[in-house]
C-alpha cells in the first residue's frame, strides 16, 4: 500500500470539507473493497476519509411506506434490525448471504451502493424496489443511479447519507454465490410494489452491471408465480462470460434465480 493520510471526521460536513482539501481523496466506509484495492496498489488516494464512525450516518427507521437505512449502517446491524425483518425481509435475506460473518460486521450498505460492483447484492435491491438514494447534496432516484461498472450518478466528493426503500407488497432475492468470493455469480431480486408494478433486477450477470429484466417483469406481471417463467428465454446479449460461466449459463441462472426469488417472496 502506498502512503496515505487517514482522517476520521465526526460529521458529514467535516468529511466533505476534508475530501475537497485532499488532492486525490477517497471515502472509506467498511473498507472491504477500498483497502484490498489499495493493498494491490490499484488505488493510491492521497487522503482516506473514514465515514464509518459518523453517528448521523448510522441507523434504520421506518416511516410511512418506506424503510430507510442510513449509509454507514453495517450489514450486521441490518441483520439485527427488527424493523427491516418486519417490513422487507428480502433485504435481510440478501444481507445474510452477502460476504461472511466478519465482512458483515464491517461492510456498509452505502459502501456497496456507492461502489456499484457489478456482482454486488445491494444494487439489485435498490433497482428492484425502486429505492431513493439520499446524499449530502440531493435525492437521486435508484432508476438513474447506476451507470455501469463501478460507476454511479454520484459527483466527486458527494456522500450517500441514506437509502430509502418503498415497502413492497412482495419481494424476494435469490443468488448463486461464487463459492470462493461469495459475490453473486448471478443474483435476482423480484418485487411487486403496493401499486401492483413488478420490478426485477439482476446482479452479477450483465457486462454493464446491475440491470432490470423486462421479459421476467412482463411474465410475472401477467402471472406472479415461479411457473410463469418456465418458458421465458433470457437474451444472452450483453451478459458476462468468463471462466466461471458462459453468457448462456448466466441467462439460465437469471431465470432460475428469479423463480426461486418468486417462490421465496410468496
Amino acid at each position: 500500500m502506498y502512503e496515505t493520510t487517514y482522517h476520521r471526521p465526526s460529521s458529514v460536513d467535516e468529511a466533505a470539507a476534508l475530501f475537497s482539501k485532499g488532492s486525490d481523496s477517497k471515502y472509506l466506509a467498511g473498507g472491504h473493497t477500498l483497502l484490498p484495492v489499495m493493498k494491490q496498489r490499484l488505488a493510491s488516494p492521497s487522503d482516506v476519509i473514514d465515514l464509518g464512525r459518523i453517528k448521523e450516518l448510522v441507523g434504520i427507521d421506518v416511516s410511512g411506506d418506506a424503510l430507510t437505512i442510513k449509509a454507514a449502517t453495517t450489514y450486521f446491524d441490518i441483520l439485527q434490525s427488527a424493523e427491516a425483518k418486519k417490513t422487507i425481509p428480502a433485504i435481510v435475506h440478501l444481507t445474510s448471504v452477502l460476504g461472511d460473518p466478519q465482512v458483515r460486521y464491517r461492510g456498509t450498505i452505502g459502501g456497496s451502493v456507492a461502489n456499484n460492483d457489478p456482482a454486488a447484492d445491494f444494487p439489485a435491491a435498490v433497482l428492484a424496489l425502486g429505492a431513493t438514494i439520499k446524499t449530502n447534496k440531493r435525492t437521486i432516484a435508484g432508476d438513474g443511479f447506476f451507470k455501469g461498472l463501478f460507476s454511479t450518478a454520484l459527483e466527486d466528493g458527494e456522500i450517500i447519507t441514506a437509502i430509502s426503500f418503498p415497502i413492497p407488497a412482495k419481494a424476494g432475492y435469490s443468488k448463486m454465490r461464487h463459492p470462493a468470493s461469495r459475490f453473486a455469480l448471478t443474483g435476482v431480486f423480484v418485487a411487486q410494489t403496493k401499486a401492483g408494478e413488478v420490478r426485477v433486477a439482476a446482479t452479477g450477470a450483465s457486462q454493464n452491471g446491475v440491470m432490470r429484466v423486462p421479459v421476467i417483469e412482463a411474465a410475472l406481471k401477467a402471472n406472479w408465480s415461479a411457473g410463469a417463467l418456465d418458458n421465458v428465454t433470457i437474451p444472452t446479449d450483453g451478459l458476462l462470460a468468463d471462466i466461471h460461466g458462459s453468457s448462456a449459463y448466466r441467462a439460465n441462472l437469471i431465470k432460475v434465480m428469479a423463480q426461486r426469488a418468486v417462490a421465496a417472496a410468496g
Binding site: Y6, L28, G31, L35, D50, P101, Q102
Partner: peptide, 11 residues
Amino acid sequence: AVKSCTVLAGQ
C-alpha cells in the same frame, strides 16, 4: 470478530 488485514490501524 473482524479480519484485521482489512482494517487500518487508525480505524
